[in-house]
């Protein structure tokens, strides 16, 4: 059969490609232009700068610390949210009374804006009038107030915990979708053979959930790597930049210090890093699938 030109697959995906190009490539070109230019604080180009902006970003004393914390931040939240969401999804997948309500409660935090959640946590973590301290005091866990946000050793773990909490609904949703695609008879058959619940999980559920795990890892990595509100609303990256990750550092460089050239260079570098990480992960995941 001869295909008409109009049903050629390339023609058919052309509108989508154009749209994606407009949304992704055009800003990328703009950012690249700013990154290699001398720019004033209002984004007006003042000449070619070569790699100067990139050098300025890398030699900034706050840069390496922010890179390292971005790594911890991303890994901790992605791994942590998967570790928490998996059991939650397994429970919500069971048939029990009130499952509908339980699922809705699980999803609710998703509906609240991230900034709102972060601000409420800022209040809760307040050293003198915060909910967390008064709750811990009432339970007799602590005697004196803990100033959660005063130093990074308590602030950063708290921020990661908030990050895990807000990432959970999305991750659980993906997992629930995955679990519902596993036919029940597989589980039943295994149980008849005398498999323990742990064995069922390890040998049946987990392998079948692989693609969904991969999606959760990739999507969450992208979200979390670029997640701004939690850290900004609680500490603005402070004290003394000790809770800065790349994206809060980027905001300061761009909008506070007005170095838009440096900011453009930094965001290109972040984009590249994210792209490479995602590609590597997708590659690894696919190879595993084949073998």
């Amino acid at each position: 059969m001869k295909r008409s030109a109009l049903t050629n697959p390339y023609i058919l995906i052309l509108p989508g490609v154009l749209l994606a190009g407009f949304i992704v490539i055009w800003p990328l070109v703009q950012i690249t232009e700013i990154a290699v230019s001398e720019v004033n604080r209002f984004g007006q180009l003042r000449g070619f700068a070569g790699l100067e902006n990139f050098v300025a970003v890398v030699t900034d004393p706050a840069f390496l610390g922010a890179c390292w914390r971005t790594f911890i931040w991303t890994v901790a939240i992605v791994v942590g949210s998967i570790a928490v969401s998996m059991p939650v999804a397994l429970i919500l997948n069971e048939d029990f009374h009130g499952r509908g309500i339980a699922r809705i409660i699980m999803m609710l935090p998703w509906a609240v804006s991230l900034t709102m959640t972060a601000i409420i946590w800022r209040w809760a973590l307040n050293g003198e009038s915060g909910m967390l301290n008064s709750a811990l005091k009432a339970l007799g866990v602590i005697d004196t107030n803990i100033q959660w946000l005063a130093q990074s050793s308590t602030a950063f773990p708290m921020q990661i915990m908030i990050g895990i909490l807000v990432t959970m609904p999305f991750t659980t949703t993906i997992f629930l979708g995955g679990l519902s695609s596993i036919p029940d008879d597989l589980n039943e058959a295994a149980q008849l053979e005398g498999a323990s619940p742990w064995q069922v999980f390890r040998e049946i559920t987990l392998p079948l959930m692989r693609p969904f795990l991969n999606i959760a890892v990739v999507m969450n990595t992208i979200y979390v790597f670029n997640s701004f509100p939690i850290i900004w609303a609680t500490t603005q990256g402070g004290p003394a930049n000790s809770t800065d990750i790349l994206v809060t550092h980027l905001y300061k460089v761009g909008f506070r210090f007005g170095k838009l050239g440096d900011a453009a260079a930094l965001s290109l570098m972040m984009f590249a890093a994210l792209l490479v990480l995602t590609l590597i992960y997708v590659r690894l995941a696919m190879r595993e699938d084949k073998s």
Binding site: E128, N145, A150
Partner: peptide, 15 residues
């Protein structure tokens, strides 16, 4: 007040 690095201007004003 303890933990001064967790107090913004508004936080101190609240105290």
């Amino acid at each position: 007040q303890p933990g001064v690095t967790s107090y913004s201007r508004e936080d101190v004003q609240n105290l």
